[in-house]
C-alpha cells in the first residue's frame, strides 16, 4: 500500500454563513489519480483550493507529504512549491511569454539560474506539445494552448502533486481534447493528480478513483466503474443522469 500524499481530516470551510465544506475526510495515495465530480456549488473546487491553502480551512487539518499545511507556524510558500495548480481560467502571466511564464517561479522561488530555468521550461513546453510556441505571449495562444502552458508552468516547479480545478471548463469543445491528452499522459507517467472535472469520459478512463461530492460532503467514492458505472446513492444517480443524458432531464 503506497503512502498517502494527501490526507485531509474533518475539513470544514465557511464563507460567512455559507457552510461550503461540512466535514471532509479524504486521502490521496502517492501516484493516484483522483477525479472529484459533483454539481456546481457542491464544494469540490473549494476542497481542491484547501489542499494548497488558497482557501484557508475554517477547521480541520490538511496534510501533504506528511506536513500539516494548516499549522500557523508552517511555511506555506515552501509547501506550495511542490504542489502544482492548474486553474479553470488558466491565469497565465500576460506580460510574459510562454517560456518566461514557466521560468519566473523557478527563478524567484527555487532560485534557479536563468540558463537552468530556461532548460527546464523548454523541456516542459515540449512535453505539452508546444515546441513552436516558446516565445508566444498568452494573448496569441488559443485557450487549449494557454492551458497547456499553464500545465507546463506548474510542472517546471517539479511538483509531486498536481491539482486541476476544472481545467477544461473554459475551453471551446474542440480544444478540450488536447488538454485532456496532456493530462492523461501525465497520469500515465505516474503523477499524483487531484482533478475537479465535468469530463466524465476522462474520469472514467484515467481516474483510479472517483469522488462524488454534493452539499459539502463526500457522498460516494470508489473506482470509476463503481461510481460512474454503478452508482449506489440517489444523489449520484440523479447527477449522472443530468450530466450523461442532458436532453432527457425533467426541468422541474
Amino acid at each position: 500500500m503506497p503512502e498517502n500524499l494527501v490526507e485531509i481530516k474533518e475539513l470544514h470551510k465557511s464563507f460567512g454563513d455559507n457552510h461550503v465544506l461540512r466535514g471532509i475526510d479524504f486521502k490521496v495515495a502517492q501516484g493516484e489519480v483522483v477525479c472529484v465530480i459533483g454539481p456546481s456549488g457542491s464544494g469540490k473546487s473549494t476542497l481542491l483550493r484547501c489542499v494548497n491553502l488558497l482557501e484557508v480551512p475554517s477547521s480541520g487539518t490538511v496534510l501533504v507529504a506528511g506536513e500539516d499545511l494548516t499549522d500557523p507556524d508552517g511555511n506555506i510558500d515552501a509547501a506550495r512549491r511542490h504542489i502544482g495548480m492548474v486553474f479553470q481560467s488558466f491565469n497565465l502571466f500576460p506580460h510574459h511569454t510562454a517560456i518566461s511564464n514557466c521560468m519566473l517561479a523557478q527563478q524567484t522561488v527555487l532560485k534557479r539560474g536563468k540558463k537552468d530555468a530556461r532548460k527546464v521550461a523548454a523541456e516542459n513546453l515540449d512535453r505539452v506539445g508546444l515546441t513552436d510556441k516558446h516565445d508566444a505571449y498568452p494573448a496569441k495562444l488559443s485557450g487549449g494552448q494557454q492551458q497547456r502552458v499553464a500545465i507546463a508552468r506548474a510542472l517546471s516547479m517539479e511538483p509531486n502533486l498536481m491539482l486541476f480545478d476544472e481545467p477544461t471548463s473554459a475551453l471551446d469543445p474542440e480544444l478540450v481534447g488536447e488538454v485532456l491528452t496532456v493530462m492523461r499522459r501525465l497520469a500515465e507517467e505516474g503523477m499524483t493528480m487531484l482533478v475537479v472535472t465535468h469530463e466524465m469520459a476522462f474520469a472514467r478512463e484515467v481516474a483510479d478513483r472517483v469522488v462524488f461530492m454534493d452539499g459539502g460532503v463526500i457522498v460516494e467514492q470508489g473506482t470509476p466503474d463503481e461510481v460512474i458505472g454503478n452508482p449506489q446513492e440517489a444523489r449520484t444517480k440523479e447527477f449522472l443522469r443530468r450530466v450523461l443524458d442532458p436532453t432527457h432531464v425533467n426541468p422541474s
Partner: peptide, 26 residues
C-alpha cells in the same frame, strides 16, 4: 485579476514576490 495573485502564490511565491513580479508590472 485575482487569479494572477493566486497563480503566483500557487507556484510558491511569497505575497511580496507576487506583488513585485506579477501584479505591479501588469
Amino acid at each position: 485579476h485575482k487569479g494572477q495573485a493566486e497563480a503566483a502564490r500557487s507556484l510558491g511565491m511569497t505575497s511580496g514576490q507576487a506583488m513585485r513580479k506579477v501584479i505591479l508590472p501588469q
